[in-house]
Design a binder for these strands. Sequence first.
DNA 1: ACCTGAACACCGTTCAAGT
DNA 2: ACCTGAACACCGTTCAAGT
Lengths: 231, 231
Amino acid sequence: MPPGKRPPISRRDRPTKPALTRQGIVEAALSLLRAEGLERVTMRRLAQELDTGAASLYVYVRNTAELHALILDELLGDVDLAPVSAAGEWRERLVAVLWSYTAVLVDHSGLAQSALVTRPSGPGYLHLVEGVLALLSEGGVAPGRAAWAVDLLLHFATSTATEQGIRSRAIDADDEEDRAAAALLGLSPETFPHIVALNAVLLSVEGAERLTWGFHVLINGVLETPRPESS
Amino acid sequence: MPPGKRPPISRRDRPTKPALTRQGIVEAALSLLRAEGLERVTMRRLAQELDTGAASLYVYVRNTAELHALILDELLGDVDLAPVSAAGEWRERLVAVLWSYTAVLVDHSGLAQSALVTRPSGPGYLHLVEGVLALLSEGGVAPGRAAWAVDLLLHFATSTATEQGIRSRAIDADDEEDRAAAALLGLSPETFPHIVALNAVLLSVEGAERLTWGFHVLINGVLETPRPESS
DNA sequence: ACCTGAACACCGTTCAAGT
DNA sequence: ACCTGAACACCGTTCAAGT
């Protein structure tokens, strides 16, 4: 077949290349995230996945930060908001929602990091805020105080998720960082080998207890601490 | 002068190239940080500053993360720990220390971010932990609870610094993110132009009040919330 | 032992040129 | 209007080869 003008062939021969849309880009990014992790959700890699050039994505997405924010909000749809309208003590239900939020983020701690830097703004996030506000209101927290509290609570959950994500690595007894961690745990360097075992506990049972404790500290503190007069 | 073997010339003609040392690298990194910001403290840029190749730095520094951790700890020497042993109410002195820590980090929010991801371990950080523990002990917080509390307090300060650093930018009424921020503040889109003014307040007076409130929430919550029985 | 150039395998973003 | 190749200006890290 000679070169030159060829008849516009039907799309069927390249079924993996649908027209670009903002939603399609976000979906591709999400599947790339699940397949290869956030660090590979780059403009170039994503474009490759979509069978185009990186430059094309800039028609739909302002920059990488916006792309990540879009993914995050999509993921936030997985947060379990059922406890908001369930039966039971409001404190416990609030902790359940915060746990769910943290759990969703912890699998993709890079996204949590971006949530810390660029406050989320999509529908997923707004639903979450709404739910937390409802629970605080049920708990009798005045609106002004609740507005600050919801920020404080979500901020704490977000930063915990950021922190946790990276901690999932082996402890190395020669590593200076790990030595300091051991010191903080009150372990003398002699008993060092034991941290390996301890660390697993820290990430599971004790880690969980600490986070729950943190949530309760925040909730009790909010109940106990009025906003300053002036504002 | 013909090429070939030249006599080893004295170092005096290149006074800016001292031998590489770990400390020298950290100092150069620190001055680069102050001059150009964290985003330019890269292995390549730093090597250039030290008149060598990036590969040479790997003799002294494991990787970029370690480099940043080293810088951070150096900076932590600037935290004002005087309130630890000053007169006055322990709560207020604790808040003062936390404020100082936050202030040091907020100027370099990228470093705060790295502190969130890689828990600091150097002497600067350990002194800070020591000071906070001393104040909590003075406040009658039991050691076990204090151990968790110091983490909670510093973690909150660190993540607040991470968050604040980026917020120092103009509000754009066309920006979706800013629209959501306005919504959260309870402003209808009609009153939108006013956020520009409001934003300044938020970053100064109200922002400061919120952070102080957050610290007090944490402190009151810690006093109010025992650690779970099991651990 | 320490240092290095060069290479490998990537990045984000812009822009002129095409359709 | 949408899409793109190519370019610009970078990255971190490794490694063989030098001194």
